[in-house]
């Protein structure tokens, strides 16, 4: 359960979030959508503690974020572009993250095997292709079985096979009771994965609906069309 109460954030003159309220239900996949610059990434970074809101509170699983780092052991994060130290091997990067998480015994290596990353373990990060970097990043997001997972444009740069592996994983983890928050530009992907859509515009929640609701109220068959209709109607 993630509770976001009235958070605002501005960077200089630019007000990115303006008193946004949102509550994200557990055991669901929530998609955060919106045009570029609407505040999606800022919202996710606020939940990760990377961005410090000017006002408002965020509570994750009953704990309010206040600079303490420990709550993040319950979160997995796959950023848009992951860049680890160039000269570390994939193995070392995994070890490093494992180390700072206190070397948990019980890890989830499903994705690692699905992506067939074993051959990449000894390679330095800087020699990896963009797709492989994304795979490493995805593996790390699920590896420690966090109850909450943030995925920022997860399938960007992935080949179709890997992309569908990842989508399968997301669906499986949802049914395992994980809370998953993702952003994506690919509406079909969201339609396939998400239970709920949160649409952000100008730093506020424009609407918040289940995918089914959205399709029903607009009478469209695809999410893309449904959102387009919804936005047109608003305008």
């Amino acid at each position: 359960m993630i509770q976001i109460e009235h958070i605002s954030k501005s960077f200089g003159k630019l007000d990115v979030l303006r008193g946004l309220d949102l509550s994200i239900s557990p055991h669901e996949v929530t998609a955060v959508l919106g045009p570029n610059g609407a505040g999606k990434t800022t919202l996710i970074k606020s939940m990760l503690g990377l961005v410090k809101p000017d006002s408002g509170h965020i509570t994750i699983n009953g704990k309010r974020i206040n600079g303490d780092a420990s709550y993040r052991s319950g979160i997995g994060y796959m950023p848009q572009n992951a860049r680890y130290p160039d000269n570390l091997t994939v193995q070392e990067i995994i070890d490093m993250v494992r180390d700072v998480r206190g070397n948990p015994e019980d890890t989830d290596e499903e994705l690692f095997h699905a992506f067939n990353l074993k051959t990449e373990l000894g390679k330095k990060f800087k020699t990896l292709s963009g797709g492989n970097r994304q795979k490493v990043s995805a593996v790390l997001a699920f590896l420690f079985r966090p109850p909450v997972v943030f995925l920022d444009e997860p399938s960007a740069g992935l080949d179709p096979v890997s992309s569908s592996c990842l989508k399968d994983k997301i669906a499986r983890e949802k049914s395992n009771g994980k809370t998953i928050i993702l952003t994506s530009h690919i509406m079909s992907e969201i339609q396939e994965l998400a239970d709920k859509v949160v649409y952000i515009l100008d730093g506020l929640i424009h609407f918040e609906m289940t995918v089914t609701e959205l399709l029903e109220t607009t009478g469209e068959r695809t999410l893309e069309r449904a959102i387009a209709r919804k936005m047109k109607g608003a305008a």
């Binding site: 780092a69 993040r72 860049r83 998480r101």
Partner: peptide, 13 residues
């Protein structure tokens, strides 16, 4: 980017 990644782990600033 590396800093950002590690700060999204349970690592204090």
């Amino acid at each position: 980017e590396y800093t950002e990644l590690m700060l999204s782990q349970p690592v204090k600033r």
